[in-house]
Amino acid sequence: MSAATFAVENNLSRSTTMSSGKLRHAYLTETKFECLRALRAPAFAIPFLLLPIVLYVLFGVFLAGSMSHGDATIAKIMFVNWSVFGIMGPGMFGFGMFVAMEREQGLLTLKRALPAPPAAYLLSKMIMAMLFAAIVMATLVGAAAVLGHPGLTVGQYLGVAVLDMLGSLPFCAVGLFIGTRASAKSAPAFANLAYLPFMHLGGLFYPLPRSVQPLEFISPAFYLDKLALRLVGAPSLDQLAIGATGPSSHGTVILSVIVLAVVTLLFTGLSIRRLARVG
Protein backbone atom coordinates (compact mmCIF):
# COMPACT_ATOMS: atom_id res chain seq x y z
CA MET A 1 0.00 0.00 0.00
CA SER A 2 1.36 3.40 -0.82
CA ALA A 3 0.96 6.31 1.54
CA ALA A 4 0.39 8.52 -1.48
CA THR A 5 -2.76 6.68 -2.43
CA PHE A 6 -4.29 7.09 0.98
CA ALA A 7 -3.13 10.63 1.56
CA VAL A 8 -5.81 13.26 1.80
CA GLU A 9 -5.18 16.95 1.59
CA ASN A 10 -5.23 18.42 5.03
CA ASN A 11 -6.62 21.58 3.56
CA LEU A 12 -10.16 21.45 4.89
CA SER A 13 -11.43 23.76 2.17
CA ARG A 14 -11.18 20.92 -0.39
CA SER A 15 -14.29 21.11 -2.52
CA THR A 16 -17.26 19.10 -1.40
CA THR A 17 -19.57 20.26 -4.17
CA MET A 18 -20.50 17.91 -6.98
CA SER A 19 -20.63 19.16 -10.56
CA SER A 20 -23.93 18.50 -12.32
CA GLY A 21 -22.14 15.92 -14.46
CA LYS A 22 -20.88 14.07 -11.36
CA LEU A 23 -24.31 14.23 -9.77
CA ARG A 24 -25.93 12.83 -12.91
CA HIS A 25 -23.32 10.07 -12.92
CA ALA A 26 -24.22 9.24 -9.29
CA TYR A 27 -27.92 8.93 -10.15
CA LEU A 28 -27.16 6.84 -13.24
CA THR A 29 -24.80 4.54 -11.31
CA GLU A 30 -27.38 3.98 -8.56
CA THR A 31 -30.02 3.19 -11.20
CA LYS A 32 -27.74 0.89 -13.17
CA PHE A 33 -26.90 -1.21 -10.12
CA GLU A 34 -30.47 -1.25 -8.81
CA CYS A 35 -31.61 -2.69 -12.15
CA LEU A 36 -28.68 -5.12 -12.31
CA ARG A 37 -29.28 -6.51 -8.84
CA ALA A 38 -33.02 -6.96 -9.49
CA LEU A 39 -32.30 -8.76 -12.77
CA ARG A 40 -29.73 -10.96 -10.98
CA ALA A 41 -32.12 -11.90 -8.14
CA PRO A 42 -33.83 -15.04 -9.46
CA ALA A 43 -36.53 -15.02 -6.77
CA PHE A 44 -37.58 -11.61 -8.02
CA ALA A 45 -36.79 -11.60 -11.73
CA ILE A 46 -38.09 -15.04 -12.72
CA PRO A 47 -41.66 -14.76 -11.40
CA PHE A 48 -42.17 -11.16 -12.43
CA LEU A 49 -40.68 -11.50 -15.91
CA LEU A 50 -41.97 -14.97 -16.79
CA LEU A 51 -45.39 -15.19 -15.12
CA PRO A 52 -47.12 -12.45 -17.15
CA ILE A 53 -46.15 -13.92 -20.52
CA VAL A 54 -46.86 -17.53 -19.50
CA LEU A 55 -50.25 -16.69 -17.98
CA TYR A 56 -51.20 -14.39 -20.86
CA VAL A 57 -50.45 -17.04 -23.45
CA LEU A 58 -52.23 -19.79 -21.48
CA PHE A 59 -55.33 -17.93 -20.34
CA GLY A 60 -55.48 -14.76 -22.44
CA VAL A 61 -54.57 -16.29 -25.80
CA PHE A 62 -55.44 -20.01 -25.81
CA LEU A 63 -58.25 -20.31 -23.25
CA ALA A 64 -60.04 -17.00 -23.89
CA GLY A 65 -59.37 -17.34 -27.63
CA SER A 66 -61.01 -20.74 -27.88
CA MET A 67 -63.94 -19.78 -25.62
CA SER A 68 -64.65 -16.62 -27.63
CA HIS A 69 -63.94 -18.25 -31.01
CA GLY A 70 -61.24 -15.68 -31.78
CA ASP A 71 -63.31 -12.60 -30.96
CA ALA A 72 -61.15 -9.47 -31.58
CA THR A 73 -62.65 -7.47 -28.70
CA ILE A 74 -61.91 -10.26 -26.24
CA ALA A 75 -58.36 -10.49 -27.64
CA LYS A 76 -57.86 -6.76 -27.03
CA ILE A 77 -59.28 -6.97 -23.50
CA MET A 78 -57.05 -9.96 -22.69
CA PHE A 79 -53.91 -8.21 -23.95
CA VAL A 80 -54.66 -5.05 -21.96
CA ASN A 81 -55.73 -6.83 -18.78
CA TRP A 82 -52.74 -9.19 -18.64
CA SER A 83 -50.47 -6.21 -19.34
CA VAL A 84 -51.86 -4.44 -16.28
CA PHE A 85 -51.36 -7.62 -14.25
CA GLY A 86 -47.77 -7.88 -15.51
CA ILE A 87 -46.64 -4.44 -14.39
CA MET A 88 -48.20 -4.56 -10.91
CA GLY A 89 -45.79 -7.09 -9.37
CA PRO A 90 -42.37 -5.49 -9.93
CA GLY A 91 -43.58 -2.18 -8.47
CA MET A 92 -45.33 -3.58 -5.43
CA PHE A 93 -42.86 -6.33 -4.56
CA GLY A 94 -39.74 -4.52 -5.82
CA PHE A 95 -40.41 -1.73 -3.38
CA GLY A 96 -42.22 -3.68 -0.67
CA MET A 97 -39.67 -6.46 -0.28
CA PHE A 98 -36.44 -4.63 -1.11
CA VAL A 99 -37.14 -1.51 0.97
CA ALA A 100 -38.25 -3.55 4.01
CA MET A 101 -35.16 -5.76 3.70
CA GLU A 102 -32.76 -2.86 3.19
CA ARG A 103 -34.26 -0.97 6.12
CA GLU A 104 -33.94 -3.96 8.41
CA GLN A 105 -30.46 -4.98 7.29
CA GLY A 106 -28.89 -1.54 7.65
CA LEU A 107 -28.28 -0.75 3.97
CA LEU A 108 -30.66 2.20 4.05
CA THR A 109 -28.94 3.51 7.20
CA LEU A 110 -25.56 3.22 5.48
CA LYS A 111 -26.88 5.10 2.44
CA ARG A 112 -28.24 7.85 4.71
CA ALA A 113 -24.85 8.15 6.42
CA LEU A 114 -22.97 8.18 3.10
CA PRO A 115 -23.32 11.17 0.78
CA ALA A 116 -25.71 9.29 -1.56
CA PRO A 117 -27.79 11.83 -3.53
CA PRO A 118 -31.04 12.16 -1.56
CA ALA A 119 -33.49 11.07 -4.24
CA ALA A 120 -31.29 8.38 -5.81
CA TYR A 121 -32.57 5.56 -3.62
CA LEU A 122 -36.23 5.93 -4.57
CA LEU A 123 -35.65 7.12 -8.11
CA SER A 124 -33.44 4.15 -8.96
CA LYS A 125 -36.07 1.72 -7.66
CA MET A 126 -38.81 3.47 -9.64
CA ILE A 127 -36.78 3.21 -12.81
CA MET A 128 -36.04 -0.45 -12.01
CA ALA A 129 -39.79 -1.14 -11.71
CA MET A 130 -40.38 0.72 -14.98
CA LEU A 131 -37.61 -1.28 -16.68
CA PHE A 132 -39.27 -4.50 -15.53
CA ALA A 133 -42.58 -3.12 -16.83
CA ALA A 134 -40.89 -2.39 -20.18
CA ILE A 135 -39.49 -5.93 -20.40
CA VAL A 136 -42.86 -7.44 -19.47
CA MET A 137 -44.58 -5.26 -22.06
CA ALA A 138 -42.05 -6.21 -24.74
CA THR A 139 -42.73 -9.92 -24.14
CA LEU A 140 -46.50 -9.41 -24.07
CA VAL A 141 -46.52 -7.29 -27.23
CA GLY A 142 -44.44 -9.96 -28.95
CA ALA A 143 -46.79 -12.74 -27.83
CA ALA A 144 -49.85 -10.68 -28.77
CA ALA A 145 -48.53 -9.92 -32.24
CA VAL A 146 -47.61 -13.56 -32.93
CA LEU A 147 -50.34 -15.47 -31.07
CA GLY A 148 -53.01 -13.17 -29.62
CA HIS A 149 -53.92 -11.16 -32.74
CA PRO A 150 -55.80 -8.36 -30.93
CA GLY A 151 -55.63 -6.32 -34.13
CA LEU A 152 -53.86 -3.31 -32.62
CA THR A 153 -51.82 -0.74 -34.52
CA VAL A 154 -48.17 -0.15 -33.68
CA GLY A 155 -49.24 3.13 -32.06
CA GLN A 156 -51.75 1.34 -29.84
CA TYR A 157 -49.19 -1.27 -28.76
CA LEU A 158 -46.73 1.52 -27.98
CA GLY A 159 -49.42 3.55 -26.21
CA VAL A 160 -50.40 0.66 -23.91
CA ALA A 161 -46.73 -0.10 -23.20
CA VAL A 162 -45.89 3.49 -22.23
CA LEU A 163 -49.12 3.88 -20.24
CA ASP A 164 -48.42 0.70 -18.31
CA MET A 165 -44.82 1.70 -17.60
CA LEU A 166 -46.06 4.96 -16.11
CA GLY A 167 -48.94 3.06 -14.56
CA SER A 168 -46.49 1.00 -12.54
CA LEU A 169 -45.77 4.10 -10.40
CA PRO A 170 -48.89 3.94 -8.19
CA PHE A 171 -48.04 0.28 -7.48
CA CYS A 172 -44.47 1.34 -6.64
CA ALA A 173 -45.91 3.89 -4.22
CA VAL A 174 -48.12 1.33 -2.47
CA GLY A 175 -45.19 -1.13 -2.32
CA LEU A 176 -42.95 1.60 -0.90
CA PHE A 177 -45.54 2.39 1.75
CA ILE A 178 -45.55 -1.28 2.77
CA GLY A 179 -41.74 -1.47 2.64
CA THR A 180 -41.32 1.51 4.96
CA ARG A 181 -43.57 -0.04 7.61
CA ALA A 182 -43.32 -3.82 7.43
CA SER A 183 -40.46 -6.04 8.56
CA ALA A 184 -38.48 -7.93 5.92
CA LYS A 185 -40.28 -11.15 6.83
CA SER A 186 -43.79 -9.71 6.77
CA ALA A 187 -43.38 -7.42 3.74
CA PRO A 188 -44.12 -10.10 1.09
CA ALA A 189 -47.26 -11.10 3.01
CA PHE A 190 -48.46 -7.49 3.29
CA ALA A 191 -47.59 -6.87 -0.38
CA ASN A 192 -49.72 -9.91 -1.27
CA LEU A 193 -52.53 -8.61 0.94
CA ALA A 194 -52.69 -5.55 -1.32
CA TYR A 195 -51.63 -7.22 -4.60
CA LEU A 196 -54.28 -9.96 -4.69
CA PRO A 197 -57.31 -7.73 -3.97
CA PHE A 198 -55.99 -5.07 -6.38
CA MET A 199 -55.69 -7.74 -9.07
CA HIS A 200 -59.10 -9.35 -8.57
CA LEU A 201 -61.02 -6.15 -7.83
CA GLY A 202 -59.41 -4.56 -10.86
CA GLY A 203 -61.75 -6.70 -12.96
CA LEU A 204 -58.81 -8.05 -14.92
CA PHE A 205 -59.78 -11.71 -15.14
CA TYR A 206 -63.59 -11.97 -15.03
CA PRO A 207 -66.61 -9.67 -14.83
CA LEU A 208 -67.28 -8.90 -11.20
CA PRO A 209 -70.75 -9.56 -9.77
CA ARG A 210 -72.80 -6.37 -9.32
CA SER A 211 -72.67 -6.69 -5.54
CA VAL A 212 -68.85 -6.57 -5.58
CA GLN A 213 -68.49 -3.88 -8.24
CA PRO A 214 -68.45 -0.91 -5.78
CA LEU A 215 -65.25 -2.37 -4.37
CA GLU A 216 -63.55 -1.99 -7.76
CA PHE A 217 -62.96 1.65 -6.90
CA ILE A 218 -60.33 0.84 -4.29
CA SER A 219 -58.07 -0.90 -6.84
CA PRO A 220 -55.59 1.24 -8.81
CA ALA A 221 -55.54 -1.64 -11.35
CA PHE A 222 -59.20 -0.89 -12.15
CA TYR A 223 -58.36 2.71 -13.17
CA LEU A 224 -55.21 1.81 -15.11
CA ASP A 225 -57.16 -0.88 -16.94
CA LYS A 226 -59.86 1.62 -17.88
CA LEU A 227 -57.24 3.98 -19.36
CA ALA A 228 -55.50 1.24 -21.34
CA LEU A 229 -58.79 -0.17 -22.65
CA ARG A 230 -59.72 3.26 -23.88
CA LEU A 231 -56.47 3.42 -25.86
CA VAL A 232 -57.35 0.22 -27.71
CA GLY A 233 -61.09 1.06 -27.99
CA ALA A 234 -62.40 -1.88 -25.95
CA PRO A 235 -64.84 -2.12 -23.01
CA SER A 236 -63.96 -3.64 -19.66
CA LEU A 237 -65.09 -7.18 -18.85
CA ASP A 238 -67.80 -5.72 -16.57
CA GLN A 239 -69.13 -3.54 -19.37
CA LEU A 240 -68.89 -6.37 -21.86
CA ALA A 241 -71.03 -8.52 -19.56
CA ILE A 242 -73.86 -5.96 -19.74
CA GLY A 243 -73.60 -5.67 -23.50
CA ALA A 244 -71.28 -2.67 -24.07
CA THR A 245 -69.04 -2.81 -27.10
CA GLY A 246 -66.99 0.41 -26.84
CA PRO A 247 -64.67 1.98 -24.27
CA SER A 248 -65.78 4.02 -21.26
CA SER A 249 -66.61 7.73 -21.39
CA HIS A 250 -64.11 10.61 -21.28
CA GLY A 251 -65.18 11.44 -17.70
CA THR A 252 -63.81 8.10 -16.53
CA VAL A 253 -60.43 8.87 -18.13
CA ILE A 254 -59.97 12.08 -16.16
CA LEU A 255 -61.14 10.38 -12.95
CA SER A 256 -58.74 7.47 -13.56
CA VAL A 257 -55.75 9.78 -14.12
CA ILE A 258 -56.60 11.75 -10.98
CA VAL A 259 -56.98 8.63 -8.82
CA LEU A 260 -53.71 7.11 -10.04
CA ALA A 261 -51.86 10.40 -9.50
CA VAL A 262 -53.31 10.82 -6.01
CA VAL A 263 -52.43 7.23 -5.02
CA THR A 264 -48.86 7.77 -6.27
CA LEU A 265 -48.34 11.10 -4.53
CA LEU A 266 -50.11 10.18 -1.29
CA PHE A 267 -48.29 6.91 -0.64
CA THR A 268 -44.91 8.26 -1.83
CA GLY A 269 -45.33 11.31 0.42
CA LEU A 270 -46.28 9.23 3.46
CA SER A 271 -43.35 6.90 2.83
CA ILE A 272 -40.77 9.66 2.39
CA ARG A 273 -41.97 11.22 5.66
CA ARG A 274 -41.58 7.88 7.38
CA LEU A 275 -38.11 7.28 5.89
CA ALA A 276 -36.92 10.74 6.91
CA ARG A 277 -38.11 10.23 10.50
CA VAL A 278 -37.36 6.60 11.15
CA GLY A 279 -35.17 5.32 8.27
Binding site: L36, Q105, G106
Partner: peptide
Protein backbone atom coordinates in the same frame (compact mmCIF):
# COMPACT_ATOMS: atom_id res chain seq x y z
CA UNK B 1 -18.05 1.35 7.98
CA UNK B 2 -20.99 0.07 9.97
CA UNK B 3 -21.17 -3.03 12.08
CA UNK B 4 -24.57 -4.35 11.05
CA UNK B 5 -25.08 -3.93 7.34
CA UNK B 6 -26.08 -6.35 4.58
CA UNK B 7 -25.11 -5.04 1.16
CA UNK B 8 -26.83 -6.20 -2.02
CA UNK B 9 -25.62 -9.81 -2.35
CA UNK B 10 -26.13 -9.81 -6.13
CA UNK B 11 -23.62 -7.04 -6.82
Amino acid sequence: MMQEVALAPEL
